[in-house]
Design a protein around this nucleic acid. Structure first.
Lengths: 110, 110
DNA sequence: TCGCTTATTAGCAATGAAGCTAAACTTCAT
DNA sequence: ATGAAGTTTAGCTTCATTGCTAATAAGCGA
């Protein structure tokens, strides 16, 4: 049910999560540093980070006390760009992204 | 909190809706023709089409009895590509897309 | 007008998402 | 050990989404 693309797009559907990804664009940040940029509570941001991690859009590593998050830009470009390039290939171009071997997993269940 | 990008990504988060967009890539289709391609009922597909329309990803026009849906590819590429190009600009290139010129009139949400 | 086709809207049940507070867990310092 | 800082997990409430069936609207033809 929860295929890859759905997880990725659902993760991107929340403005806080998109902002987190933009903040991570310049380098890794600790969970607390990320949470400090929003009005939401720490647990709420932690859950958002969990959604992003489950979608494969961020990676985490431990540094002593803290947990540092990094952007998984290639994964983001691959998932989203792959869909975009199949629906409107004229308007978008993917760069240095290997296409997956097979086509879509054909999940057409409603 | 339902900004434009959130509506677009939320619309793309459902596999049926992504498949609808892919089906529309080759030209406009009537609602019934779209519904016939899925196992879901007509009303369910109609709601999916409503979500896509509200996100601005499809346009509709009346033809006698039928309502024909078309892909709004430029809008799709603009919304998604704009975000992608800010988060991971190295991996993606936008083509013939004006620089975020759309001042959307804040579409209403149910 | 009546009936048929096409498509949407209304209403309902089930599921999931998002936010909070409180508690728990990990790591390091005292 | 004890404690403090940094994060996550648990539990709860609220609201949105998804799906269905039944009902409604709109258009065309006899």
């Amino acid at each position: 049910m929860t295929d890859t693309a759905s997880d990725v797009f659902a993760a991107l559907a929340h403005p806080t999560r998109r902002q987190i990804l933009q903040d991570l664009k310049d380098g890794e940040l600790a969970a607390g540093e990320i949470a400090a940029r929003f009005q939401a509570t720490g647990p709420t941001i932690s859950r958002h980070l969990g959604v992003l991690r489950q979608a494969g859009l961020v990676t985490e590593r431990r540094d002593a006390n803290r947990i540092l998050y990094s952007l998984a830009g290639e994964r983001l470009a691959l998932s989203v760009g792959d869909f975009l390039s199949t629906v409107c290939p004229e308007q978008i171009v993917l760069r240095q992204v290997r296409k997956r071997s097979t086509g879509q997993p054909a999940e057409t269940q409603a």
